[in-house]
């Protein structure tokens, strides 16, 4: 871990814990002020000059603390603009990937749209927003691009994949938070004269939960490494799908061990499980990524699959050695 990463993580940990439970209106100004949006913007362009490992670290912490402010969206928006050489306007920037809702569009000072071979910046007035709400109660708006962008540059960047990576990273944190709540609950809740944690059936369920959280952590880290290597199409498809499977398996366990207590609006579990449920549908469903990955693998052939999987980690070893 770089020294910059350590400082970044310390800052994010403190700020996001502080903002835990805060609404968008009070959380976003603090996140904006901290400057996370420029995380991937090169240092010589006035940014933080971070890498995808840094992005994973802060997005994981955002997920862990159920941060109500946008973080992935401005980071990716500024990244796309920097890559395209388009100057970023002041304020909150969000992203529009093909076929996707635009998170926080109603609050945005600009939308970076990527798809159909271009990256383009739209300013308010060149689009209309129809408000929508995610399962977690966050702004999930529909945007109709009615006017012209202020800038547009040819690009084949896959924003759907980058958005999927962001949700994998956030999910890794949210799963840890839901898992920790579950462990704390079963250790303190007493029924039949003993803590729930002492029941073997409960232990086995939580062991299974931990395996799923572990799988998402491992896949998220492997994606970040591949992104830093410059090509992560295969890894992100696999990781977003694996994360969908993990959400499918572990959210029910989290709620099951909590009983009715975990089903209330006051109790924190829903801050995480509702986000997880939403993210599973965002930036490509399980079946979308399964089919995209499956088609790519079918073209590689049976033996070719293994050769590809091995070569993709070997290239990283060669680069680091």
């Amino acid at each position: 871990m770089s020294e910059n990463r350590t400082l970044l993580v310390e800052m994010a940990e403190g700020l996001f814990a502080d903002l835990s439970g805060a609404e968008f209106a009070s959380a976003w100004p603090r996140v904006a002020e901290a400057g996370f949006a420029s995380l991937l913007v090169p240092a010589d362009a006035g940014g933080f000059g971070g890498d995808w490992g840094d992005v994973l670290a802060v997005l994981r912490l955002a997920g862990l603390n159920a941060l109500a402010a946008p973080l992935a969206e401005p980071i990716l928006a500024h990244h796309l603009l920097a890559q395209a050489g388009i100057a970023a306007p002041e304020g909150l920037l969000t992203i529009a990937a093909p076929g996707q809702r635009v998170p926080f569009a109603r609050h945005a000072d600009g939308i970076v749209r990527a798809g159909d071979g271009a990256v383009a910046l739209y300013l308010p007035g060149s689009y209309s927003v129809t408000q929508g709400t995610s399962p977690a109660g966050e702004p999930w708006d529909a945007v109709d691009f009615t006017g012209e962008p202020v800038a547009s540059v040819a690009s084949d960047i896959d924003l759907l994949a980058l958005g999927a990576f962001a949700r994998v990273a956030q999910a890794s944190g949210a799963l840890e938070a839901a898992f920790t709540l579950s462990i704390d609950h079963v250790n303190t809740r007493v029924q039949f004269g003993r803590a729930l944690a002492k029941f073997q059936a409960v232990q086995q369920a939580l062991a299974e939960f931990s395996e799923e959280a572990a799988a998402v952590d491992a896949s998220a880290a492997a994606c970040a490494a591949a992104l830093d290597h410059g090509d992560a199409g295969f890894e992100i498809a696999a990781a977003k799908l694996r994360t969908g499977i993990a959400i499918d398996r572990s959210v029910p366990i989290a709620h099951r061990v909590h009983g009715a207590i975990g089903f209330t609006i006051e109790y924190a579990l829903n801050h995480h499980t509702r986000r997880l449920m939403g993210w599973r549908s965002e930036f490509g469903s399980d079946s979308f990524w399964a089919e995209r990955l499956g088609r790519a693998v079918a073209k590689l052939g049976g033996k070719g699959l293994w050769h590809e999987v091995a070569a993709r980690t070997d290239r990283q070893v060669a680069a680091s050695g």
């Binding site: 799988a215 491992a218 896949s219 492997a222 295969f234 890894e235 498809a237 696999a238 990781a239 799908l241 694996r242 499977i245 399980d286 079946s287 990524w289 399964a290 089919e291 995209r292 990955l293 499956g294 088609r295 693998v297 079918a298 699959l305 999987v309």
Partner: peptide, 14 residues
């Protein structure tokens, strides 16, 4: 079938 191959690949890769 493509989806099944994708799913098995994702689990194996992870």
């Amino acid at each position: 079938v493509a989806q099944l191959i994708g799913r098995l690949t994702a689990e194996m890769w992870t």
